[in-house]
Each structure stands twice: as structure tokens, then as C-alpha cells.
Design a protein around this nucleic acid. Structure first.
Lengths: 121, 121
DNA sequence: AGTATAGTTCATAAGTTCGGAACTTGTCAA
DNA sequence: TTGACAAGTTCCGAACTTATGAACTATACT
């Protein structure tokens, strides 16, 4: 099993970070890891969206987040502990993650509202 | 020739905006359109990077920026006038574009510095 | 040992992107 | 008007990326 790759933030180009977060599953995963207390293992993350994500797909998404320097992964026994590297990224690209996470929330709220509107029927 | 598509910002999901800017050519194009005075036509944009971008490629990139709601394109004679839709996007996703553009500058500066270091030899 | 659990890797089908060649549209000169 | 040119766009093949099921590894617990 290959060792986990955790780049120096200084070595991560902006486009890699944006690409990592330019996917609805990955922003949702990152949001969860940033905002919920404690490290998250993959099983806890399988249901970030309304439908469960296949394990192999989740594994790839987590690799992309890790290799973009957004998330730190540590193997503990059979599990993977994922924690955010928010502060490091923020030091290099100030305000970037906050803006993206805020935008993500804006979108979630908008979606919720339009769902409510439909439920009236 | 197909008419240009300019979505309502409300209809543009975050991931579309991030995807549009998750490309070194496209951030550079957007940066140029936002920060340089006046509308930019494609010829003025061919050289945003150190090497010229093929016209067909540029055309695709501009379409992606337009369809992400980031840029407005208007045909004027044989040319296309491209202007930014910064304010509209900022109203929906506050701070997002500023953070990305700032991050882009951070990266440009870092690259410049490492180039200088090499030139010492 | 065997079994279970958590996650990874591999293979491949489906989708996306880049860029050259050919095309469209508008402008200007003869 | 016709011809030539300039600015972009479209088309399409080669190269690349992504999603996921099946097979695998690695650890823990009987």
C-alpha cells in the first residue's frame, strides 16, 4: 500500500486547490472535515451527499484533497483519520478557503430554500 | 454561429465557477479582464502567459468563463468585447473572486521571486 | 488459523480537453 | 460586387481524466 502524500503548501499551485474543490462531492467532504469536530474517517464521510458514495470513489476524492494539501490523512489501525489543513492553506492563500466554504454554504441554503418551495405542493 | 450564453449568476453553481478558474490559463485571462481597463478582445488575450495560446483553445476557454457567469462577451464587428461580471458574482458569492484573484497574485509573486533567484547564476 | 472491517488499487468505460484545419462573419479596398 | 484579410468559432481525433466494480491489502478480533 502506497504511503500517503502530503505536499508542502508552498508547493501547491492555486489551480490544484481550486480543482480539488471544484467538485460538489469534494467541497462537501472538505466542509465536513473543517466544520465538524474531530477527525473523520471515510465511513463517516460516505454520506456527505444525499446518496452514499462508493468506497473506491471516496478513496480517490480523499486522495485528491490530500494531494492538494487541504486535508491530512493518518492511518490508525484499519481506519483513516482525516483532519483539515485549513490554517496552513490560509497562511499561504489568505481568505481563500473561507470564501469557498462560505460560497458553499450560500449554495446549500439556496438549494434548501428551493426545496421548501417545492414541498408546498 | 451560435449565440453567446450568459447565465444568471443565481443559476451558476459554485463548482462551475471554481472549475472555470481552476486552470492557469483561465485565471490569468480572468485576472486580465478584471484588472486591465476597458474591454479586452481575444487578440489582446492571446499572450496572457509567456507562450501564445492557440486561437481555438482560447475560444474554448472564453466560452467556459462566459458560461460560468464570470465574463460578458459582446460581438462588435469581427471582434469580441470581453468584460468582467465581477460585481454580480460578488453579490452572490461574497469575497470569492477577490480571494481567488489575490491567491493568483500571491502565486505570480512567488513565481517571480523564484525566477529572480535563478537569474543570479 | 478464520472472519470482519476499513480503505486502496486496478482495469476499463465514459467523459473531457487541446489544438490544427476548415469554416463563418464582418470590414475594407479596388 | 468581389476579393482579401482579420477575428473568432466549430469540428474532430488524439491524449488525458474520472467514476466505479472487482480484486486486493492491512489491521483487529475472535
Amino acid at each position: 500500500m502506497k504511503p500517503l502524500v502530503h505536499p508542502d503548501i508552498e508547493d501547491v499551485p492555486l489551480e490544484v486547490i481550486l480543482h480539488a474543490l471544484a467538485d460538489p462531492i469534494r467541497v462537501a467532504l472538505f466542509y465536513e472535515i473543517v466544520y465538524q469536530e474531530g477527525p473523520k474517517n471515510c465511513t463517516m464521510l460516505v454520506n456527505v451527499l444525499d446518496h452514499p458514495i462508493p468506497k473506491s470513489t471516496l478513496s480517490q476524492h480523499m486522495r485528491i484533497l490530500r494531494e492538494a494539501g487541504l486535508v491530512r490523512g493518518e492511518r490508525h489501525g484499519t481506519q483513516m483519520h482525516n483532519t483539515s489543513r485549513y490554517d496552513e492553506v490560509d497562511a499561504r492563500y489568505p481568505g481563500l478557503l473561507l470564501a469557498i466554504i462560505t460560497a458553499h454554504s450560500v449554495q446549500i441554503e439556496a438549494k434548501k430554500k428551493s426545496m421548501d418551495a417545492i414541498e408546498v405542493f
